[in-house]
Design a binder for these strands. Structure first.
Lengths: 117, 117
DNA sequence: ATAAAATGAAACCATATAGTTTTATTTATT
DNA sequence: AATAAATAAAACTATATGGTTTCATTTTAT
């Protein structure tokens, strides 16, 4: 197959699309419901869904008059594989922790120590 | 800190920039050398490096008349963290293997089974 | 002291991106 | 049968992106 116009990396580059993926991770949803979570038009959301669809991150099925989208999470494995090349640089967990702490307020994560039994 | 114009996800969206990261993973290089690996102008490469720099994926240091760029791999941890949210969908290795096999010729990877002792 | 090397910076260009509004089509509902 | 709901498709817009060429600056070399 020839490479599609949008690949996974481009697809996840947009913050709105990443939010859409998060939504669909919880459950499959029709376009209108997805739209209700964003301040943009339904048409704009539909376009994002097309891009996600091209990248195979999401799959849409027409049911009655609505089109229901669901996450296709396996595709993200491509990203994981790409990342794995760089894991050698931080396969020691300390470097990860260091980075996370240093960027605590930037990344929108609240960090909780994993093994605080 | 306010979000920079380019974040990690946008930075890695471009194939050329991903190749640049690969190059720098091996060793730090000056702009001109990086350029020699691509069919585009030095100026274009410099721009890519600026974007990677904004995203903190690389760091450039001026040494004499050249500017030497090196990889800043910790930043990729942000991507790993983002991905981890979806790991629950394929934390069973079979689904990963399934995906990899099905897309063998598309992703340019040769897969070797990990634990084939 | 000049010339060459390496980069920086500016101006420009074509296309892509992310959004809009408008119009049409399909499918329920009443 | 008529209306409302959900989406599809098209046309348009502003800005971003990825590239170019040209000119200036800084730093070796000869």
């Amino acid at each position: 197959m020839t490479a599609a116009k949008h690949d996974v990396f481009q697809a996840i580059a947009d913050p709105t699309r990443r939010e859409v993926l998060r939504l669909l991770a919880d459950k499959e949803l029709p376009i209108s419901e997805i739209t209700s979570h964003f301040p943009i038009s339904r048409t704009a959301v539909a376009k994002h869904l097309h891009i996600l669809s091209e990248a195979k991150l999401v799959r849409g099925e027409k049911v009655g008059r609505e089109k229901i989208y669901q996450l296709q999470p396996e595709t993200l494995i491509e990203v994981k594989q790409w990342l794995s090349y760089y894991e050698r640089f931080w396969d020691n967990k300390l470097s990860i922790l260091k980075h996370v702490v240093e960027n605590d307020d930037e990344n929108g994560f609240t960090m909780i120590k994993d093994d605080c039994e």
